[in-house]
């Protein structure tokens, strides 16, 4: 490890992270991970620190994952689900930020449907800001937990071929993964039907294809994205049936990937839409491990941002 802290007070995306910073977060997550395997899942590392979880958009697993990480590290956590909050009543974001600041939180974890909102808060708050998903822009802790999961399986990220398939247009998971995986020396191929592949995506430095079989060819990791039918509407893809035929991951299709290839999914899954149940539940699936690693990665991010130094064990 060549560095001992992150450069910024915020984690807004993976786009700006250096390889050293990514490695630091993953190594820290690795060190913190055993906390979750003990009978008493709590260390006093962040005692007296206040973290506010601000979720302007529905979320179950990301919010639970952050809250779990906060509890295990003994931070004081406060969660807002912002539906029905003052923001919905027309309070400006700047006022929201100032009101939050007045309560002196140490860190804000925010999810919002619009790209850039975490950046806006970060500019206007002394507290650190963690982006827990901003529209279709970034979801850095998801990419970090994906990277941890891949690294634990393969021992490395460099040189791997990762195929990400699904609604790329609306996917913050895809974008955050692209930045991170490229930075760590992996190659990424993005696959989607033409209506869900955004223009000029290859300018992010990835391959892009509409041919699922071609995308799977030689892949080490097959990452499937949720078909967000609630966001897409019928005009972007006619039906789940039509989607599954062309882009659903079945055992037969998975045969095109490398024999040791693994299957991942950020959840929540639509069984029978983007992924067949037998594949999701197979030994090659790392989907539940991703969830466990999510808590470890979030502990690492919270710890690094709030203490400004590396984890030195429990006496630290």
């Amino acid at each position: 490890m060549t560095i001992s802290c992150l450069r910024s007070k915020d984690l807004l995306g993976t786009e700006g992270l250096s390889a050293d910073e990514i490695a630091l977060i993953l190594d820290t997550a690795e060190a913190l991970r055993p906390i979750g395997e003990r009978p008493i899942k709590k260390v006093p590392a962040l005692r007296g620190r206040m973290v506010v979880n601000l979720f302007f958009e529905a979320s179950t697993r990301t919010r639970f994952s952050f809250e779990t990480a906060e509890k295990w590290l003994s931070a004081d956590a406060l969660s807002f689900a912002a539906k029905g909050s003052s923001v919905e009543k027309g309070e400006s974001l700047l006022d929201t930020a100032r009101n939050l600041q007045a309560m002196s939180p140490d860190l804000i974890v925010i999810r919002h449907s619009c790209p850039g909102v975490p950046h806006f808060l970060a500019r206007n708050l002394r507290a650190g800001v963690v982006n827990a998903g901003d529209g279709a822009h970034e979801h850095p802790t998801q990419a970090l937990l994906d990277a941890l999961t891949i690294r634990r399986r393969f021992g490395r990220l460099e040189g791997l071929r990762i195929a990400i398939t699904g609604d790329i247009t609306h996917s913050r998971v895809a974008r955050s993964n692209v930045w991170l995986l490229k930075r760590m020396g992996a190659s990424v191929v993005l696959c989607a039907p033409p209506t869900l592949l955004p223009p000029r995506i290859e300018e992010m430095g990835v391959e892009a294809t509409t041919d699922f079989d071609a995308a799977l060819e030689g892949a080490d990791v097959v990452m499937m994205l949720r078909m967000q039918l609630e966001r897409q509407g019928a005009s972007l893809f006619p039906s789940a049936r039509e989607y599954y035929k062309r882009y659903g991951l079945t055992a037969a299709r998975l045969g095109r990937a490398k024999p040791e290839a693994v299957v991942m999914h950020p959840g929540p899954m639509n069984r029978g839409v983007e992924i067949a149940s037998d594949v999701a539940d197979s030994a090659r699936s790392l989907i539940l491990e991703q969830v466990s690693n999510g808590v470890a990665v979030r502990m690492a991010v919270l710890y690094l941002l709030l203490t400004g130094h590396t984890w030195e064990g429990e006496t630290a």
Binding site: A136, H137, E138, R172, R175, R200, I201, E203, M204
Partner: peptide
């Protein structure tokens, strides 16, 4: 505007 930047930022773009 719709282009490489809107794609990168995840914002809807007008072509």
């Amino acid at each position: 505007h719709e282009g490489a930047v809107s794609t990168r930022l995840g914002l809807p773009g007008q072509p």
